[in-house]
Amino acid sequence: MVPIEVQPTRGPPRALRWTDPLGRAQDARVARVLDDWDYAGRWWEREVRRYYLLLETDAGHTLEIFREGDAWCLSRVSD
C-alpha cells in the first residue's frame, strides 16, 4: 500500500499526492468520485474499518484509495 496525501482533509477530495515505486512524486486532481464503500476488515484479528473511494482524475486515470484511521492509502491505479 502506498501512503497518499488527500486534500482537503475533510469533505470530497480534490487533490492527491503520492510517491510512486520509483520514488517520484505524483500529483493528481480529482475530476469526480465514481463510488465509495466501506470494508470492515477482519474484526476478529483487530483489523480496523476502511473507507474506500473510487476516483477519476483529470488525466483520465482511475484511482482506488482508502482511509484507515486518519491515514489514506492508494490501493489501485488504472488508466
Binding site: D38, Y39, A40, W44, R49
Partner: peptide
C-alpha cells in the same frame, strides 16, 4: 467460521 467467506455475511456495518 469467520475465516470462511459467504455471500450472506456482512462486509461492513451498514
Amino acid at each position: 467460521s469467520v475465516q470462511e467467506p459467504h455471500p450472506e455475511r456482512p462486509r461492513n456495518s451498514a
